[in-house]
């Protein structure tokens, strides 16, 4: 564990909490992409199957369970409890265009051709693009993202950016790297870059955020 990873994990956790609180307090999931949230739930489910096979640390297991739990609750709130407020008409990104190629890539490019390993690889690839329906939703409607949603996206983006710092650190300190995780992590971070720029130039100056289509 190093500082980049710890702060990255905490940022990841903060993102999930921000989104949950936003939905819960406003009793509405307007502006939130249910499709992105379903894909994140898939990411956690396929990656954290190792909860049953390997024990790393109490911290590791607790965080995995919390991520799974929070993501399930988020999906539940969007598709059941506050379904009436879900903006499905604007959440039109075709998820199969991401999931199918990502699944194919996971089968073709992996470290080891085994069930758990392919699912892990799938989760890494899927995570890197899972936010696209959310970004698409914000840009397509041309309507403003709520400031809270922007904070959520920022925290989620910072998490993967810090993980890149963590991988560089681990490469030099511990002498190893995971090519699949690094490439996917970089793709993921790049997808957030445009958003980061808008976030810093607009949200921090008190304006609302729009992503040009």
């Amino acid at each position: 564990m190093n500082i980049f990873r710890l702060v990255g994990d905490l940022s990841h956790l903060a993102a999930l909490i921000i989104l949950l609180l936003k939905i819960w307090k406003s009793r509405s999931c307007a502006g939130v992409s249910g499709k992105s949230q379903i894909m994140f739930a898939m990411v956690y489910m396929t990656r954290y199957l190792d909860l049953f096979t390997t024990f790393v640390s109490v911290y590791n297991s607790v965080m995995k369970v919390v991520f799974l739990l929070f993501s399930f609750v988020t999906v539940y709130l969007i598709y059941f409890k506050f379904k009436a407020t879900y903006d499905g008409n604007h959440d039109t990104f075709r998820v199969e265009f991401l999931v199918v190629p990502v699944a194919g890539l996971a089968v073709l490019v992996n470290h080891e051709f085994s069930f758990l390993e392919i699912l892990w690889t799938f989760s890494i690839y899927l995570e890197s693009v899972a936010i696209l329906p959310q970004l698409f939703m914000i840009s397509k409607t041309g309507c403003e993202a709520e400031t809270i949603t922007s904070h959520y996206l920022f925290a989620l983006g910072i998490y993967r950016a810090l993980y890149i710092a963590n991988w560089i650190f681990r490469y030099y300190m511990e002498g190893f790297f995971d090519f699949i995780a690094i490439v996917a992590g970089c793709v993921q971070t790049i997808l957030y870059c445009d958003f980061f720029y808008l976030y810093v130039t607009k949200v921090w100056k008190g304006k609302r955020l729009t992503i040009p289509a």
Partner: peptide
């Protein structure tokens, strides 16, 4: 087995 080491991450 180098690549398995990031499995201790989240």
């Amino acid at each position: 087995d180098v690549h398995h080491n990031v499995k201790d991450e989240l």
